[in-house]
């Protein structure tokens, strides 16, 4: 059986310009940030990013990696508005497709089921249908004749998700209070890559996961596994750690000022690798503690 362990750079090497990339997590929660940072360090461009958005969306868009954003919201949760998302939207720097959260879920399900669309009531009457003229409605073929939104499949080239613990074969556990849509992102994608706080032997996976209900990412869904301790930083990854609120605040402050943003990028994003990022975060924490 294949050992699917990879580095963040090896995951990025599997991606190419113009791909549609789905990103798991939700807002500023359990985002595969180590993989996002690896994309930021790469030459990739013209990506379509599909996400229940948080700083993953903000960062990729601000860095010019994303040509198009597909979202229902983009938020940092404890700080409601994502500053880099605001920047690219208010300056017209990116193409946007906005769906309702439930429409988005129907789109992931349709892709996972290999269906062209799924009907949903969500979106009817709203301006979502106006700003996205590609959306069509469909009439029920049964006696009720109800007219519903035909939510198109959100087919993904690649999905990136972050787990609490995984094995080297690509099985992984989501042990926190919400697993979001990560398994559907994996099923909706041609290839899915999972980063994890730690990679353990298959023999130890259930023990490490704590409960078999958490074992929701299975190896037939995943093409690669990356061990990235603190890899969801600065988003939360319970139970391992909460959101780094001080860092998130610093991120927001920097994003609001061009000079400060350049300094933030130089210090945290334009670094050699994930280890260099984590070293700078450790220094940031020491400075903040003073």
């Amino acid at each position: 059986m294949a050992d699917k362990r990879m580095t963040p750079e090896e995951v990025v090497a599997q991606l190419s310009d113009g791909m549609t990339v789905g990103i798991g997590g939700w807002g500023s929660r359990r985002k595969p940030m180590a993989l996002v940072r690896a994309i930021l360090r790469s030459d990739l461009k013209d990506l379509t990013i599909v996400s229940y958005g948080g700083p993953d969306v903000g960062l990729l868009a601000r860095a010019g990696k994303a040509k198009k954003l597909v979202y229902a919201f983009v938020s940092l949760d404890s700080i409601p508005l994502e500053p880099n998302f605001r920047h690219v939207r208010e300056n017209g720097l990116v193409e946007a497709v906005e769906y309702d959260e439930g429409m988005f879920l129907s789109g992931l399900r349709a892709a996972a089921y290999r269906l062209p669309f799924l009907p949903t009531r969500a979106g009817l009457g709203s301006d979502i249908l106006k700003v996205s003229p590609h959306l069509k409605t469909v009439a029920s073929p049964y006696a009720d004749g109800e007219e519903l939104v035909a939510m198109p499949a959100l087919n993904l080239d690649v999905a990136l998700v972050h787990a609490n613990v995984a094995d080297e074969k690509g099985n992984a556990a989501l042990t926190g209070p919400d697993q979001f849509m990560d398994d559907l992102f994996c099923l909706a994608a041609e290839k899915a890559y999972v980063s994890a706080e730690r990679v353990v032997s298959s023999e130890d996976l259930l023990k490490e996961a704590g409960c078999f209900h958490t074992l929701v990412l299975h190896r037939y869904m995943t093409a690669g596994v990356v061990e990235t301790p603190n890899g969801a930083h600065f988003t939360e990854c319970p139970p391992e750690y909460g959101r780094d609120e001080a860092f998130q605040k610093a991120y927001v402050t920097a994003a609001g000022d061009p000079e400060a943003w350049t300094a933030f990028e130089d210090r945290f994003l334009k670094v050699a690798d994930e280890a260099a990022y984590q070293a700078e975060v450790a220094k940031f924490r020491e400075e903040s503690a003073k």
């Binding site: 229902a72 919201f73 508005l81 017209g92 009531r121 969500a122 979502i128």
Partner: peptide, 25 residues
Amino acid sequence: SAIGDWAKPKRQVLGSRGGPGNTIN
């Protein structure tokens, strides 16, 4: 979602979140 013209908003806020689905359901 956004204040001003949605295509290039004066002020981007959250996005429509679950609003469309909530209100019709």
